[in-house]
Structure formats: structure tokens, C-alpha cells
Nucleic acid binder design. Structure first.
Lengths: 147, 147
DNA sequence: TTCTTTGCAAAAACTTTGCAGGAGG
DNA sequence: CCTCCTGCAAAGTTTTTGCAAAGAA
């Protein structure tokens, strides 16, 4: 089974809980909160197991972790090794995954101006999705000036 | 006093607690957690007051709010109306504020490809500051490939 | 067997809420 | 004077931890 292989590849001991969690993350097209993972997993599982397992996965770079501003619960997703970011609707909470990243040259600039070694970043975009715009009768004209 | 003026300008009723909180945020060069604000404020104040006040300030765009990945407690800072981002050292936790933003054209692209109206974003860069690099004997060569 | 992981229970950390008294305009 | 704000207490959420039993290699 490929899920087991993903774990072994990272040197993570294979257990049925870990397989179940990873399967959920692999099958999801969107990032999930810990409670959503608990609901989706195919065997009952304690939250402490989920926290511990997700920490382990994160340390081994098997998954990515994001803390959105609204709602501010951490979400987890499989690390497909394709760089991407989230576009989050502040009305309905829908998360869209967008591929690609405009930050590489910027990071190089910041590294040389600050002396840091940058190894990752977190970027989310927030706004209104098309259907919430319709529902709320918002048009592009009313967009707030970006600060 | 200019702190009172900032409040009045936004239509926020002036109280000694609000003045004290805003003063702390105005005087700080770095974003602060709610506990740090409580420690820095010049009169004893309940945490519920802090939560409520910071919510109010945030709704009126008087302050900015960020949720870093590590450590993941929300931080608050005065909204100077100059766009900036954070560079966070994952070893010592130090937060550097960096001015400028490389995202404006990118947001326009994403808007047209997704139909969203984007009104803000959150971006943080994570890495090692110069002194932690020295302390940990890390050099640029060992930098992880960015995923 | 030996070491790691899990579930349970409890605690810690963080955040929200209701209400009565106090402060601001 | 009227309304809104604050402190207190309590409860709700989210996350962490210790320990004994179960599971993986």
C-alpha cells in the first residue's frame, strides 16, 4: 500500500492510526482541521493521538501546516512537494488552493538585506469568493484599499 | 494626546484601558502577544478586556493581527498603514518587520483567475537569524530546498 | 523482547460569555 | 442620565502531558 510506503520512506513507524490519518490527508483536496480529520478517519481515535501524529508528520515534512486568520484553527494537508498557497473566503470559509508562488526572488532579496537564511514561508490571501460576492451584492468597486 | 486622537478618529470611545493598550502598541517596534501587552500596560487589566479591546481595534483597522506558525499565538501591532511583513527566526523567535510587499501584481493575477475579490493577505517568512546561524553553526549551503 | 505508540484522564493554555457595577460623553 | 465598558467568575475550546496497556519490529 502506498500510504505505508510514504511513512516508511520518512522513517515513521507504521501503525493503523498513522495510516488512517495519512490516508485522509492524501485523499483530501483541501486542508483539514484536526476535528475534520478525526471525523474522516476510519477508526475512532483520541485527539491526543491526532495531535501527536500530526506533529510527527510535520517534523518529517510529510505534511504542511497553516494557521489562517479567520477562522484561526490550524489546518493540515499532505505535502505534495508542489509549492502552493491558500485563497480563503472570509465569508463562507472556503479554501482554494492556488499553485505557484511569486516569492522566490523576494526571499533572496530579504536574505541578503537581513542576513537571515529563509527556509519557508506562510502566505494566505483573503477575500470574497464569487458566490459570496453575489450573495452580499459586493462589486469590485467597493474593494478596500489595500494597506 | 495623540493616542486619544487615534481612537476618536476611528469612532472608538476613549477609556483609560484603551488608551493604555494603544500606547503600548504604538510604542512597540515589534508585534506583541496578548500576554505581552498585559505585562506592558500601565494599569492592571483583565484578559477579557484585552481580548474585547483588541477585537474592537481590529474591526476598526486600528491594528493588525497575525498568527505565526511557531509559536502559534496571535500577535498584534499598530496599523501604520505602511504595508509590511514579518521575518521570524524559528530558533530564537525574534520577529523582524520588513517593509514592502511583492504581492500586488500577484493578487491581481489571482483575482482574475479565480473570480475572488482579494482584500488582504498574510505573509510571514521563517528562517534563522544571523546570530542563531552562528550559534548553531549553520551555513547557507545546508539550506533546505524550498518546497 | 524492547522500544514506541495509543487511549484515557487530567491539566494547562487560550478565548469567550453573562452579568452587575462603574466610567465616559 | 443613559449607554457602553470593565472586572469578575464561569464556561467553552484547543492543546499538552503522564502513565499504563497495547502494538510494531
Amino acid at each position: 500500500m502506498e500510504v505505508r510506503y510514504e511513512l516508511e520512506k520518512k522513517g515513521i513507524k507504521v501503525t493503523k492510526q498513522r495510516v488512517a490519518i495519512l490516508k485522509v490527508l492524501l485523499e483530501s483536496t483541501v486542508p483539514l482541521t484536526i476535528n475534520q480529520i478525526q471525523d474522516l478517519v476510519d477508526l475512532p481515535m483520541d485527539l491526543s493521538t491526532l495531535y501527536r501524529t500530526l506533529d510527527t508528520f510535520y517534523e518529517k515534512s510529510l505534511i504542511l501546516k497553516t494557521v489562517p486568520l479567520e477562522p484561526s484553527q490550524t489546518v493540515y494537508e499532505f505535502n505534495h512537494l508542489v509549492h502552493k498557497h491558500h485563497l480563503i473566503c472570509t465569508n463562507c470559509g472556503k479554501i482554494l488552493v492556488i499553485q505557484g508562488c511569486p516569492l522566490h526572488e523576494y526571499e533572496d532579496e530579504v536574505e541578503s538585506s537581513t542576513g537571515f537564511i529563509i527556509d519557508r514561508h506562510q502566505l494566505e490571501l483573503y477575500g470574497l469568493c464569487a458566490s459570496c460576492q453575489k450573495q452580499l451584492n459586493v462589486t469590485k468597486k467597493e474593494k478596500h484599499t489595500h494597506v
